[in-house]
Computed example of a mutant assay.
Amino acid sequence: MRSQRHLLSLPVLGAVVALAAAPAQAGDIASIRPIGFSPDGAVFAFEEYGIQDGSGFPYASIYTVDLNKDTYLPGTPFRARLEEDGASLAQARWKVQSAAETLLDAHEIDNQPAEFLAFNPITESDVDALKIRYRHVSALPPIEEPSTLVLEEIPEPPDPACEGVIEQKVSFRLRFTERDGKAANDVVYDDERIPNSRGCVSGYRLAGIVAGQTTGGGTVEVALVMVLSAGFEGPDGRWIAVPIKTAAPPTR
């Protein structure tokens, strides 16, 4: 059983909004906490949370992704937004974690933690928001050559619902241009359509890579992509998880 003490001790990953020094008009950028994988590497769960721009309401969501089908598990994601006066971010997170607990336990998500292989927060300067070069194994000295994953934004036809809100609606694809130190041209994800949940999306960031180990010794990797969509006071940042390396199916 997760405790409130455990919740409040969790590290904050990503950009934190609503600081005193923040501009008066700005969208909100959700923070992210990877939770983990199922033992077979087929399910990945993560939490995003923050303070909604405009309303000031605290919110939290937990997503559980079927990596083989690249879809959410039935009945998910879990979401909480607290509109009561004085409601806190900790309360929103506690509420959504309580709602997701049974499903997370059923898939043993907490037993297979997610490891950051690379992280590119929006607060970091002098980085390429559309490219990450990383190694697949945490080791010193390095035991392998790096791979390079790039995100390519694709202009989409005008959307009447977004006219006057953003200049251009875009989709994206993910491509490896380097694999283990060798040149490559390997598309691992390409938007077939833009889901309505992205709203008037004007851009993306390739914000991180996480990996997990299966009980059978395999590895799985997920790209964390930030979706930048029109918000009440500026661009809002929300997270999606895209499988870029799925675990091999078990042998019979």
Rank of each mutant, 00 (worst) to 15 (best):
L140E: 09
G234Y: 12
V227F: 08
A248H: 02
V65D: 02
P249I: 04
S31I: 12
E144A: 14
A248Q: 04
A184D: 15
V17G: 15
A129M: 01
A207D: 06
G181L: 02
E163P: 01
A161N: 11
G217L: 00
A223H: 00
A106F: 08
I209P: 00
N196L: 05
L89H: 05
D159N: 15
I154P: 00
P58L: 03
N185A: 15
S125I: 14
G14T: 09
G54L: 01
H6I: 02
F116T: 10
A118M: 02
G203C: 12
K245E: 13
S88H: 00
R81I: 14
G203E: 08
F78E: 02
A24Y: 10
F57P: 00
Y72G: 05
A100W: 03
N68H: 13
E47Q: 12
Q4H: 09
A100P: 08
P250A: 15
A100L: 03
I143R: 04
I209R: 00
G75H: 09
I194M: 05
A118N: 02
R79L: 13
G234V: 10
E163A: 15
V220K: 04
N68M: 08
D53E: 15
W94I: 03
C200R: 05
A230T: 07
K95T: 15
R252N: 06
E221M: 09
A92S: 06
P74N: 13
R79I: 08
S88G: 01
F232A: 13
I166V: 09
L8T: 14
V65H: 02
A139S: 05
G181E: 01
P250S: 15
V210M: 02
R2A: 11
K169D: 05
D105P: 01
V16N: 06
R2D: 06
P34Q: 05
G234D: 09
D66L: 11
E115K: 06
I122G: 09
T64R: 00
E163L: 12
R2N: 09
A183C: 02
S197N: 08
H6M: 03
P74D: 13
E152L: 13
V188S: 05
V242K: 00
S98I: 12
A99C: 03
P113V: 01
L103Y: 05
E47L: 09
V16R: 11
L19C: 02
G212H: 10
Q4M: 12
D126C: 06
E84D: 09
W239A: 14
F57N: 07
S229H: 11
G212Y: 09
V17N: 14
